[in-house]
Design a protein around this nucleic acid. Structure first.
Lengths: 201, 201
DNA sequence: TTATGATTTTATCAGTTGATAGGTTTCTGT
DNA sequence: ACAGAAACCTATCAACTGATAAAATCATAA
């Protein structure tokens, strides 16, 4: 019934969706406001009715991206929280399949293209979406003795989380992973992370 | 005596150096030919006397960057080749300290901004500079029983090399690492890579 | 000295970019 | 039906981009 509201949401949401696809694929600089508008089927100045400027649109894209990941990771951790190996595998697999094609590019854009205030806000969202959920897995693992003693090995939850995230988020080829290959890769990552490449002595 | 030759080299080399710093820090798109020229102390059209176009300059920057890394890694491997743990640590530490501040951005630029023929050439150089040297460490480790059986664990040399490279090359913060922090991080990476986060049973 | 070629400069172009002003259409609540 | 707001459009701007043409400077070899 509230056609106005739906209409706003439709345009707004479509712009964010299109922008996310382009920004994450090509990077902030390589995507023009005209290209976004064209794909949305609107004219370029209309974008500026929905968003203050290009940066604001990018920030909104990042927020929606991070929020989606936060929801998904919490779900996975709730489901497999009792089995740390399976939990890490599922998290790794999910990120591999659903992350932006080039997270390195995304981090670079956040660092170089946004202002201080935006950066801080995105940082907050990033921590809640990626860092805390994954660190919580390792924290539980340490408590239950499935992860080495951090004091001896340096395996504190947050550094461990970043180690896993670095492992996942970088990819020297930007290829989109196929399902079974991503599963294989996630399994390899998880195995190495937990048990290492050296044979048991 | 050959003043002409020196002069060419001076300009040429200075342009490449300045361009490398800017390209690696800001990314291909964010660096204008005018900015490079300004820092070099020359006018922008002069760049086009030394390089066919912006892309050609970027390719040259990448080549010099990769060549430097190739030389360094071969040196390290020759020196510590008999001790796989120390060798991996030294390689990890060296890359952490000397890599471009954002390798993710670099990969993205290679993938999206270069043509097919340039991409293939850079790929060749990349393999010789990073992939083969690091894979050779794991290959030796497998032969000598310091790395698990690849058939059982999936720890083939090249996937293992990429695992380590992914670990190193990504950094969600683009901060320049300080020496002792990089050493600590390299040690942590090497330890996890070889022995895993799970305690020995 | 002088001719030649390498190097660099000035002037300029055409295309793209993010952004704004001002008018027009569309929708909504009364 | 109508007032007001929201959504969208046309036209346009100033800045910046990579690139080229043509002239000027410079070093070098004869």
């Amino acid at each position: 019934m509230n056609n106005q509201f739906e209409h706003i949401n439709n345009s707004h949401q479509k712009i964010v969706e299109v922008a996310r696809e382009l920004f994450m694929e090509m990077g902030y600089r390589a995507v023009s406001t005209r290209k976004i508008a064209e794909i949305c089927g609107i004219t370029q100045p209309t974008l500026y009715h929905h968003f203050k400027n290009k940066k604001a649109l990018y920030v909104e894209v990042l927020k929606s991206e991070l929020l989606k990941m936060q929801t998904a990771l919490r779900e996975i951790i709730k489901k497999h929280g009792n089995d740390i190996e399976e939990c890490l595998f599922q998290v790794t697999y999910h990120i591999l399949m659903n992350k932006p094609s080039s997270m390195g590019q995304m981090f670079h854009d956040i660092e170089k293209e946004l202002g201080e205030e935006d950066k801080k806000e995105i940082d907050k969202w990033w921590i809640e979406s990626y860092q805390l959920p994954i660190a919580s897995i390792f924290e539980k693992g340490i408590k239950e003795g499935q992860i080495r003693n951090p004091i001896e090995f340096g395996s504190y939850p947050i550094p461990s989380a970043y180690l896993l995230l670095n492992l996942i988020s970088s990819n020297y080829r930007d290829v989109q992973l196929q399902e079974h290959i991503a599963k294989e890769q996630a399994r390899f990552y998880t195995n190495v992370l937990l048990y290492g490449l050296a044979p048991l002595r």
